[in-house]
């Protein structure tokens, strides 16, 4: 450490029991009040984060002629809902929404369930090979998806699963991150004594899982479920390879297809892009605080 100061002076000044809100500037580190500069930087960053999304809606509400003029439009035109409807029907987005909801829902629920029981075993149960198996779990997080797509594609071709949702769902169920996440949570959230008490009462491992682990892990399960839903909803490479735009697309495949027409209709593309993201933005607007908490919680141990 570079700080040279020794303990005594710090102890010499008695700490105030609770920091009063009015105190400014002199506070160190995490308890400094933000000055105007900090708010300006944050404001700019927030605008940069949000404005492109708002502008997607603006562009979708204008026609192509308006988009091919300078300066670009900064406020909504009247055509938003017509364009959204057109994207919904023309680009197969309605079906894509249905498909993606199934894909993301099934895989999020399955991942949460499997990760919780595996995470519980890694966090709280003793068994031979536990350390080595956990290392494998962590190692699998590093394997890039590109290394899997060719054989997976062969499997799908062999099974004749092209354009079928299970081709996308099954590979997405492998989530080392989920196992790791639940293990970290249960390590600190589930006291050993509770498990022991249940054991003494003669509860089997499954009963422990149902009556002790699941109730304790519920907040983390919710966060993991949301993160996995977002990830599967936005997944691009693999669905793009096995699903076609006209077959059984997910939202991302359908939206990507919008951009590749011969005469791209910019405002229609933006309507599709907006629709493809809207459900997640709504989820984030409602559960934003929990998602932020979940990401930060998972991060400290990462």
């Amino acid at each position: 450490m570079t700080t040279t100061l020794t303990k005594p002076p710090a102890d010499a000044e008695p700490k105030p029991p609770k920091r009063s809100r009015g105190m400014k500037a002199a506070r160190a580190g995490g308890h400094m009040h933000a000055g105007p500069v900090a708010y300006i930087i944050l404001g700019v960053f927030t605008v940069v984060s949000l404005f492109p999304l708002v502008w997607t809606a603006i562009a979708a509400s204008r026609d192509n002629q308006r988009l091919a003029q300078t300066p670009p439009p900064f406020w909504f035109g009247g055509g938003l809902f017509d364009k959204l409807e057109l994207a919904w029907t023309d680009a197969n987005l309605g079906e894509a929404f249905f498909n993606t909801t199934i894909v993301a829902g099934v895989s999020a629920l399955t991942i949460v369930f499997l990760s919780t029981i595996a995470g519980f075993a890694f966090a709280k149960l003793r068994f031979r090979g536990r350390g080595a198996l956990m290392l494998i779990v962590i190692g699998t997080m590093m394997v890039p998806p590109q290394l899997q797509v060719v054989p997976l594609y062969m499997m799908v071709a062999e099974l004749d699963w092209t354009d079928q949702l299970q081709a996308v769902i099954l590979p997405s169920l492998v989530s080392a991150f989920g196992v790791f996440f639940m293990r970290q949570y249960l390590l600190q959230a589930l006291p050993d004594e509770i498990i022991e008490a249940a054991r003494v009462d003669g509860a089997s491992s499954w009963r422990v899982v149902w009556h002790v682990v699941f109730p304790t892990a519920r907040p983390a399960m919710a966060v993991l479920g949301m993160l996995m839903f977002v990830q599967t909803w936005n997944d691009f490479l693999w669905p793009f390879l096995v699903l076609t735009q006209t077959g059984n697309p997910t939202v991302q495949v359908a939206v990507a297809g919008l951009g590749s027409g011969y005469t791209p209709d910019q405002s229609l593309i933006m309507a599709g892009a907006l629709l493809g993201t809207l459900p997640l933005l709504i989820v984030f607007a409602i559960f934003g605080k929990q998602i932020v908490g979940g990401i930060m919680q998972g991060a400290v141990k990462g």
Binding site: L42, F45, T46, S49, L50, P52, L53, W55, T56, A59, L67, V230, W233, N234, F236, V251, Q252, V255, A256, L258, G259, Q266, I269, M270, G272, A273, L274, G276, T277, L280, L281, V283, F284, A285, G288, K289, I291, V292, I295
Partner: peptide, 26 residues
């Protein structure tokens, strides 16, 4: 502070496909 944190996660919620098509236009 929660508002800023959620706002800066909005791009993370945006899919690669949507974000890329938007940036083509921008």
């Amino acid at each position: 502070s929660t508002f800023y944190r959620v706002a800066m996660l909005a791009p993370y919620a945006t899919s690669i496909a949507s974000a890329s098509l938007l940036f083509v236009l921008l």
